Each structure stands twice: as structure tokens, then as C-alpha cells.
Simulated scan of single mutants.
Amino acid sequence: MNTKKKSPIEYVRVLVLAVLGLCMLFPFVWMLATSFKQGVDVYNLSIIPAHPTFGNYLRLLKSSEFPWWFANSFFVGMAVTVSVLFFDSLVGFTLCKYEFRGKQLIFLLIMSTMMVPTEMLVIPWYVMSNQLNWLDSYWGIMFPGLMSGFGTFLMRQFFTGVPNDLLDAGRIDGLNEFYIWSRIAIPLVKPALAALAIFSFIGNWNAFMWPLIVSNKIRMYTLPVGLSFFNGEFQSQWEMVMTGASVATIPVFIVFTIFQRQIIQGIALTGVKG
């Protein structure tokens, strides 16, 4: 039995971390509490609502296009995440395990896309979307994120830890290259896939600028864009803004709760991959 006493500095660390944790949690608690307030109670500094009500949530679902915005964000987030996992892992595997002319140049070009600010790409994206009639469509919202330079780099680094002898054994058994990638290599990099999936889904769930530019119809808005219009739609009724934001956090909370072990493992392994 370990009877070693903690030093005072360790108690101080725990106290500081606890205070910082409460500071980070407070805005979320305030948002959730405000969603149950009504009228002038919104401007009351008390966290506990004086007259709690679920009417804000009913109004949110019945008096706005919120269900459409929620569905749009969920569909776009899931579709882009699946695409990123497929293409980034496939390209990362190819750049890691195969030798061909121009390999390093291709990898360098993919990495260079991470250095270009999104704001510089908005105009060419919009021009292309307009010419191809992708405005006000799911494809128009999704296409910039269907593959990412970060995901390709991440998967390539993780595939370096997959033994080449294991892949060669599959080839000796007569397996084709796609089967080797999907059935042998992919199961060995599941933590990286989990981390990449979470980063991709949350990034697209919270995306604002590009969906705002490419969508003109209200029913094509994603959640962040739709929430930005709540002030005009409900005449600055902050309880509705907080209600919408509270509902918008549910999918992210569920995903993190289910996959928190894979997320932590993937982030930890990302830090040690060279």
C-alpha cells in the first residue's frame, strides 16, 4: 500500500486545475440555464431560472427552421467525415508504403495546402461552385473538406508503424492491395482514425464561413449559420439563442462520451509519432 503523502505543491496544482476546469465549464452551465429562462429572467444574474420552462425548446422546433439546420449539419458532418477517413487513409497508406516517382513532391504539395488560409480559397471555391451549379446544395457545402492535408499527414505517420513484413505476408497469400489496406493496415491504426474522425466531424459541425457564403436558401443553412440569424428571427431573444446553442452541443457531447478513450489515445499517439 502506497502511503506516500502528497506535497503541498501537488495540492496547489490540483486546486489550480479545479478552478480552471470550473471556469471552462461555467459558460456551458450559463448557456444551459438561460435556455430554461423566459422574458426578463434572461437578464437576471442568477444561474437558477426563477420560472423554468421548456417552452423555448418547443418554440425552437416549431417556429423556426432549426430541425432542417440540425439535419443539414449532421448530414454534412457525417458525409465529410466518411470521405476524409477513406481518402486520407488511402493516400496516407500509398505515400507511406509504396515507392514511385514524384512521391515526395506529391506529399510536399499536399502539405503545402495546410499553409494556405481558408479566406484565400473562398473566392475560387465560390467561382467554381457557381460555374458548376453547386450553390445551395449539399455538394457545394461539402466539397472543400472531402479530403484534408492534415488527415493525410496524420495517417501517413501512423502507417509508418505498420510492419512491411506483415503486408508482404498478405501479398504472398494472394491478397490484392486494396484488401491489404482495408483488412490488414487499417485495423492497426484505429486510434488515428478515431482521432481524425472526431476532428473532422467537429470541424464541419462548427463550420461557419463557407456554409454562409455558399448557401442562400434558409433551409440549406447549417447550424452555426442558422444560429447566427436567431437574433433577427426572434428579435434578440437571447433565451432562444441559448436554447439553439444547447441543442447544437448534444451530438458533440454524445460523440465525445462514446469515443473519449479513442480520442485521448489518438491524441497521445499523435504526439509521439515522428
Rank of each mutant, 00 (worst) to 15 (best):
residue 126 Y to T: 12
residue 23 C to T: 15
residue 40 V to W: 13
residue 69 W to A: 01
residue 231 N to V: 11
residue 73 S to F: 00
residue 143 F to L: 13
residue 190 K to A: 05
residue 152 T to E: 09
residue 165 D to E: 15
residue 102 G to S: 01
residue 119 E to V: 15
residue 23 C to F: 14
residue 55 G to P: 11
residue 66 F to C: 05
residue 242 M to A: 04
residue 106 I to E: 01
residue 228 S to D: 04
residue 257 T to D: 06
residue 226 G to N: 02
residue 189 V to I: 13
residue 89 S to A: 08
residue 56 N to F: 12
residue 144 P to Y: 00
residue 93 F to R: 00
residue 61 L to P: 11
residue 105 L to A: 10
residue 35 S to G: 05
residue 239 E to W: 14
residue 52 P to H: 04
residue 128 M to I: 14
residue 118 T to A: 11
residue 206 N to T: 12
residue 274 G to V: 09
residue 197 A to K: 01
residue 252 V to Q: 03
residue 124 P to D: 03
residue 112 S to L: 09
residue 30 W to E: 07
residue 192 A to E: 01
residue 87 F to K: 12
residue 67 P to N: 03
residue 183 R to I: 07
residue 53 T to Q: 04
residue 26 F to Y: 14
residue 187 P to K: 02
residue 171 R to G: 02
residue 167 L to V: 13
residue 150 F to I: 01
residue 192 A to C: 04
residue 111 M to P: 00
residue 255 V to T: 11
residue 112 S to I: 11
residue 157 Q to T: 11
residue 189 V to F: 06
residue 26 F to R: 04
residue 71 A to G: 08
residue 164 N to G: 13
residue 206 N to G: 05
residue 71 A to M: 15
residue 83 S to P: 10
residue 39 G to E: 09
residue 201 F to M: 03
residue 216 N to G: 14
residue 14 V to Y: 14
residue 50 A to K: 15
residue 147 M to R: 14
residue 94 T to R: 03
residue 121 L to D: 01
residue 31 M to D: 03
residue 4 K to D: 11
residue 139 W to K: 13
residue 84 V to H: 09
residue 28 F to Y: 13
residue 8 P to K: 07
residue 29 V to A: 14
residue 49 P to W: 09
residue 157 Q to N: 14
residue 125 W to R: 13
residue 224 P to W: 00
residue 245 A to S: 13
residue 70 F to K: 05
residue 95 L to Q: 05
residue 138 Y to K: 08
residue 34 T to A: 06
residue 145 G to D: 09
residue 91 V to M: 10
residue 114 M to F: 09
residue 156 R to Y: 10
residue 35 S to C: 01
residue 147 M to Y: 15
residue 67 P to T: 03
residue 91 V to C: 11
residue 249 T to I: 12
residue 167 L to Q: 07
residue 185 A to M: 02
residue 76 V to G: 07
residue 37 K to C: 02
residue 91 V to N: 08
residue 29 V to I: 15
residue 145 G to F: 06
residue 250 I to N: 03
residue 122 V to H: 04
residue 97 K to C: 08
residue 175 L to W: 08
residue 4 K to S: 13
residue 31 M to H: 03
residue 26 F to E: 06
residue 40 V to A: 15
residue 260 Q to N: 11
residue 160 T to V: 14
residue 111 M to V: 13
residue 170 G to L: 05
residue 169 A to S: 12
residue 153 F to D: 08
residue 198 I to K: 00
residue 181 W to P: 03
